[in-house]
Write a protein that binds this DNA or RNA. Structure first.
Lengths: 186, 186
DNA sequence: CGCCGCCGTTCCGTAAACGGAACGATGGGC
DNA sequence: GCCCATCGTTCCGTTTACGGAACGGCGGCG
């Protein structure tokens, strides 16, 4: 008989590769070279190179040394934001960043991604609900269906969402934005 | 002569030990034995034993196999509850919610709390940097020191922050807001 | 009692993650 | 043009994390 467990490793590699990509992205954000980061973190360049390319399965110690040097918590490079609740549609993906309640109203702050080439419609909310959008990148058209507003990167939109309203990306670029929903105390 | 005796690794072991303790705690919660968990996760008992006792430095793959079997995200067993980077001042506390880079600029989105009774001043940033604030609660005065702006809950402020600027809460209530910093590509 | 099943730890050979060094490629400075 | 510094990758010997097997300890059962 052949030994029962020959071992296989395709499944996890996807994860390992994603971790490597995140590290590479963080490093690129900071504009530092692989060599520099490896030296600062006290790991070999070979290690960091293979890690970023997803061809190695790093130890916790190695990962910790690198993320510490990047100034991010270890969890930041592991499998995606994961546990954060997300609303998904054909053209819009909204991730809840924070919710907040005070005496007058409650608030929900979302990160918003709008893919080009479609429009997503949202039904009317209760009276008094307002939406505030700040655009990071791309060109966004959003607001009441009969009176939409437009904003480019850096722009800000605001409307009362007690009527049906929609979101659409203008142009080819995906829109990134933050969305603040304000629900007045009922 | 002995070779240069390159490296020792005392400092990280504390961390590794903590990870092991968390895994052991999670396993105890579920009332399953070390042997059972090792078999279910497809790792050796020796591996799991050493890992729980903090005498080994596990690979990502090993950790993933175990936490998956325990039904918790990988981050759950890593160093303490999410140390998200935070900027603290006497009157302002800013927590980074998300950072984002695209072709034209990079962005940082913060949750902002401003305590009443003081003003916090921030030095000028590089030319072209803009700040966007959406107020959740309270009344905020912020912007360039010589031309501050004011917004109540639901309001929005925007200024270019290449001059010294400040943040202050008007009235007794603590201000909650979101702050978007936009850094144009240098 | 002796036996058996399972517990968690320890031993050990193997596979692989590690750091150092060498490599070709690229981009300034003179 | 040449030189030198630095880039990221690859090679290689050493270290070590890995799983399987053996170990002693402990409770249940005939």
């Amino acid at each position: 008989m052949t030994p029962p467990r020959p071992a296989r490793r395709p499944p996890l590699d996807a994860d390992a590769g994603a971790v490597g990509q995140r590290i590479r992205a963080l490093r690129a954000e900071r504009g530092i070279s692989l060599s520099t980061l490896a030296r600062a973190a006290g790991v070999g360049k070979a290690t960091l190179s293979a890690l970023e390319n997803g061809t190695r399965n790093p130890t916790l110690e190695t990962l910790y040394a690198i993320t510490a040097q990047l100034g991010v918590p270890l969890a930041a490079v592991l499998a995606g934001p994961a546990a954060t609740p997300t609303v998904r549609g054909a053209t819009v993906v909204a991730t809840l960043l924070e919710s907040f309640t005070d005496t007058d109203a409650s608030y929900e702050l979302y990160r918003l991604r709008v893919r080009p080439g479609g429009e997503q419609v949202s039904p009317a909310h209760r009276p008094g609900v307002t939406e505030h959008v700040t655009v990071f990148a791309g060109m966004l058209r959003a607001g009441p269906l009969d009176a939409p507003l437009t904003a480019a990167a850096g722009g800000h939109l605001r409307w009362t969402s007690d009527v049906p309203h929609g979101y659409a990306a203008l142009g080819e670029e995906e829109v990134a934005a933050s969305l603040l929903l304000r629900y007045p105390r009922s």
